[in-house]
């Protein structure tokens, strides 16, 4: 067992050692639906998952606001003792979030990519090795957000509704969107669920963009332990009521303040 040797003065040692006796609920980014369904099995130990829309990540301020609202709501349920966040730092979207009653457990991760790859360390190594990679996962594919035919269709429909009378502008907006990926040359697919359909779609994106396809081995341990414990300090941050999530610019990624 991966026990943190550091003594914690926060009184949550019991919580870390035995989350099975704890009543906790989960707030997760919708991007993880496939992974959480497969890890949760028939009878998951947590009481309820609330998913928030993955598109929120484009607007860190909005993400922060939406998570805070979901958190407040859960905290009003007196039977919930702790809340697990299936989020990373997500830019700075999680910075400043503060529980008022329930401790929050959050993985030390930059974003969903760190979580799927199993650690921020591995994420950084892969980023330095393949800086031109754009990451895909079943959730990114479902959300029609990753570069490729679905995104284009989705975006065209959106802008046609907004600026329909000006097709020239719509074309230009789509062209600009494409241009914004111009530095990428590789679709990197990370999956923990053997989702062949999503993998095939990712391959077709790579093909249509003229990119390489690369399959990266996912590592479910961080996500698994986030959901089931143990919540050792090395891999997880526990934020106590009244404290808030902050960025840590070292390898710990997150700290509470």
């Amino acid at each position: 067992m991966n026990q943190s040797s550091k003594k914690q003065s926060n009184g949550f040692n019991e919580m870390k050692a035995a989350p099975e006796t704890l009543k906790y609920s989960v707030i997760a980014c919708d991007v993880f639906k496939e992974e959480l369904e497969s890890l949760g099995g028939e009878k998951p130990p947590w009481s309820g998952i609330q998913y928030l829309e993955m598109g929120l990540h484009d607007q860190p301020d909005l993400l922060r606001k939406s998570i805070s609202i979901a958190l407040r709501k859960l905290e009003m349920n007196a039977s919930i003792e702790a809340i697990v966040f299936v989020y990373g730092l997500c830019g700075t979207g999680l910075v400043g979030i503060s529980p008022s009653r329930c401790p929050i457990i959050i993985p030390r991760a930059h974003d969903c990519v760190s979580i799927l790859l199993g650690s921020p360390k591995r994420h950084s190594e892969i980023l330095q090795k393949y800086p031109e990679a754009y990451f895909y996962s079943p959730g990114w594919v479902r959300g029609k957000r990753a570069p490729g035919p679905d995104r284009e269709k989705h975006l065209r429909a959106f802008y046609t509704q907004r600026y329909g009378d000006d097709q020239e502008l719509v074309d230009e907006l789509l062209e600009a969107d494409k241009e914004s990926f111009a530095h990428h040359n590789c679709a990197a697919y990370v999956d923990l669920t053997q989702n062949e359909k999503a993998e095939d779609y990712c391959k077709s994106c790579a093909h249509s963009l003229g990119w390489k396809f690369r399959k990266l081995e996912g590592d479910p341990r961080l996500l698994h332990d986030l959901l089931y414990g143990p919540w050792d300090d090395k891999r997880f941050l526990i934020v106590q009521p009244g404290r808030s999530i902050a960025l840590s610019t070292d390898s710990k990624v997150l700290r509470e303040q």
Partner: peptide, 16 residues
């Protein structure tokens, strides 16, 4: 953009 009224492509088109 910050207020979530427009998105990245619109910023890029303005920059052009």
């Amino acid at each position: 953009f910050k207020a979530n009224e427009i998105f990245v492509p619109e910023v890029l088109v303005a920059a052009r």
